[in-house]
């Protein structure tokens, strides 16, 4: 019989202790953010999808030399480059940089393998869409827009 009362006593006590803890949490400051009305600040190293870095000095507006390292190293094959060699020019010129973000695993191998550091990660995370095409980015165009 005494074991029974002991159990009731222990049970009530543990419930009261629990209630006390939740009560203390209740009067503590709120830890959540009201997304999307409030935005989360992204860490400087946050890895969003990749982006070509605008470069004011280069004629093409970016540092890419169309070497194709990023395309070759990407494990998921998300990068499609287009380049051409204009008549008389010595170097290839990048004419299209297409990123298929639906397949990207954000590993960063493209960024690391770029010999001219032409790539970095964007800080964009508000990405939502109804079609797969919404996640295919033309990085060259984005770079142009960012330069302006």
């Amino acid at each position: 019989m005494s074991g029974y009362f002991r159990e009731v006593y222990d049970g009530c006590k543990s419930l009261l202790v629990g209630l006390g803890i939740t009560f203390r949490y209740m009067i503590q400051p709120v830890v959540t953010l009201q997304y999307p009305r409030q935005a989360v600040k992204m860490a400087p190293r946050y890895r969003g999808h990749i982006d070509l870095i605008p470069d004011a000095e280069a004629e093409s507006g970016n540092k890419c030399i169309a070497c194709g390292m990023c395309q070759r190293n990407c494990p998921s094959g998300c990068i499609t480059l287009k380049s051409e060699k204009p008549e008389g020019a010595k170097k290839k010129v990048l004419t299209g940089y297409r990123l298929d973000f639906t397949k990207c695993s954000l590993c960063g191998l493209c960024v690391e393998s770029c010999p001219t550091n032409a790539l970095d990660f964007s800080k964009e995370y508000n990405l939502a869409g109804l079609q797969a095409e919404n996640f295919v980015f033309d990085l060259l165009k984005r770079c142009e827009e960012r330069r302006r």
């Binding site: 860490a43 946050y46 954000l106 990660f121």
Partner: peptide, 9 residues
């Protein structure tokens, strides 16, 4: 996230 750039993978 501050060191690696991502939160889970």
């Amino acid at each position: 996230e501050r060191v690696t750039g991502s939160r889970l993978t």
